[in-house]
Nucleic acid binder design. Structure first.
Lengths: 338, 338
DNA sequence: GTGAAAGCGCTAACAC
DNA sequence: GTGTTAGCGCTTTCAC
């Protein structure tokens, strides 16, 4: 059956022999060098078609020393919609530079992140975009000194100087809490991910700023950190509501937590106000009103990718930190009915 | 600043010179050949550390002729949650085979699909998983005859014999419509994507089977095909409801259409029954009850990936078609409140 | 156990 | 314009 007998792939010399020219002429033709006699071009193209020749890109870039036309993207988890939009956007920019994208998941594990980084360096990708899990990226320095281009996405690097593109986490969270305060809430339940994660830290700091400036006394029982999955958020919300003097509003630190909070509030039919960080795909159909700190995820990915290709293209300017702004949006299915 | 002066990357000969051994010994060490004297191993490792040597994988696989430890995945759009889950699952399986994944989007364009296919062949990926957009895949034959392994996902190939993994679309759709019929509905609005897409064709055929077997006369005004985006689904639902003798139930052919239908039905507060193909992430929080034809997307991706690695590993058996089953599930936020 | 030389498939340099 | 030669970085002979 087909594909069983593997007839060795034809090489440039096979093509050259078939076309009756030299390998160099074949090379010229497949690289579109214009100074080849049209009839020879024709002969070569015919031979290529006959043999089913397909230039070996590895050999090509090995010899020419040019770029491999590949970049790498290290993220937490491709199945997470936030990261898949990032990946899609980066791939799109990459394509406009005739470059392919290898995406790998670090699963929020710093050691795995480092291994993936080094593996991708071994493949000689032209550059890397990293959403860092770890808090020390000095392992990247030797590679960067040898020319590897690296851009950090969503979280800044530490222990090394490099480009980064992040969201204005603190300001966004502050705005969200200020909005709740303006609506008259003073007991606000705050639920965020682990403070070991940069974005969670920043957002919590924004929350604190808003509370402090409003002169709200600090109540530890209203702040829960280290909440990762929606189910945990469900439990934490239930817990807070069942406590003495429950909050009248919640601020949730990311979309997974927001979804958990929506779930529990809806299950109870509870009308506590809800404001969360991150917009998400079906937020407009949520069965209750909520406010979200939204930002342009595609812009985040696009900006990082363009920065990377600038670097690959030879831009040697001082590393930059780009901050993407946020805005407060109202969501929920009720809004559709107006 | 760092990374500006690009000190040529060290090669095996640099390492050999530094360690005072031959390149072959260096090669043995980095390939874990056990027959090297421990002290030489040590010297080589020290040299590698000093120089920051990192083996060039392209050169390695070029010379050895072994696999490139890369596979390709051609999908419609990585930003679509269905495909990102597929990509994540495939990447996970790939990782267990120490293989990287290059994901490219065909944007539902057969010509682009073919170009991406050939580009990935040029990179000498070890194998390819394709969610085909086009309806003729004979372009893949020459490459497959030269040893390229290809598995088709979600839609079968045409014009070529190859492995495929698909969902039981017809049976799933039939079950969904039968469920609506059993609930007493006889006027069912059916909305699907373009019949040029395999899955849409199959699902529509399942719908027809159910209607025919129930003896329901065929009403063209109740069937709309070629609906792609949620906004179009919104309009189509509105249109049908505003018509004379409107449907009392809807069957929607994929998750994008289902979401559009939910949106319009909720906006109107209309209580038509709704059953759709595909489950989606937040279906449990939809503000109305609905039924969905669900299936295990991860199993789809995993099965295809494992099949591909079997092929890469030398399995030469006759091409297989694997069919993944579906099940009917009830969703909507009301269910949480019980 | 170790090393020298050849060569994977291709392109840069140089000749013609 | 075209062809010959050397060599990218590595691994495979096959000697020693």
């Amino acid at each position: 059956m087909g594909g069983q007998d593997r007839p060795r792939r034809p090489t440039v010399s096979d093509v050259a022999a078939t076309a009756g020219v030299s390998v160099k002429t074949v090379s010229r033709v497949i690289n579109n060098v214009p100074t080849v006699r049209p009839e020879l071009v024709e002969q070569v193209l015919v031979a290529i078609g006959e043999l089913g020749f397909r230039r070996n890109d590895m050999a090509s870039s090995l010899r020419s020393g040019r770029r491999t036309a590949t970049i790498g993207l290290i993220i937490e988890d491709l199945a997470n919609p936030f990261y898949s939009v990032i990946a899609a956007t980066v791939a799109k920019v990459a394509r406009s530079y005739d470059t392919h994208l290898i995406t790998v998941s670090s699963e929020e594990d710093p050691r795995l992140e480092q291994r993936q980084f080094l593996e991708l360096c071994q493949r000689r990708v032209d550059g890397l975009i990293i959403v860092p899990a770890g808090s020390d990226h000095s392992y990247a320095r030797p590679e960067m000194e040898m020319g590897m281009r690296v851009v950090f996405l969503d979280r800044p690097p530490s222990g090394i100087l490099a480009d980064s593109v992040v969201i204005d986490n603190a300001r966004g969270a502050r705005t969200g809490v200020e909005d709740l305060l303006a609506a008259g809430h003073s007991r606000i339940g705050v639920i965020t991910d682990s403070p070991s994660i940069y974005t969670a830290r920043e957002r919590l700091s924004g929350v604190r700023t808003a509370l402090t400036e409003a002169g709200i006394p600090y109540d530890d029982s209203l702040i829960r950190v280290g909440v990762t999955r929606p189910e945990e958020a469900v439990r934490v919300v239930a817990d807070m509501l069942d406590g003495a003097d429950p909050p009248t509003a919640f601020f949730t630190g990311n979309n997974r937590i927001t979804v958990g909070a929506v779930r529990e509030l809806c299950r109870r039919g509870h009308d506590a106000a809800l404001t969360g960080f991150d917009d998400f795909e079906l937020s407009a159909l949520m069965p209750r009103s909520l406010s979200l700190i939204a930002y342009d995820v595609q812009e985040l990915g696009r900006t990082a990718a363009l920065r990377l290709f600038d670097r690959i293209g030879g831009d040697g300017s001082w590393p930059s930190e780009t901050v993407i702004g946020t805005r407060l949006v109202r969501r929920g299915v009720e809004l559709l009915k107006t």
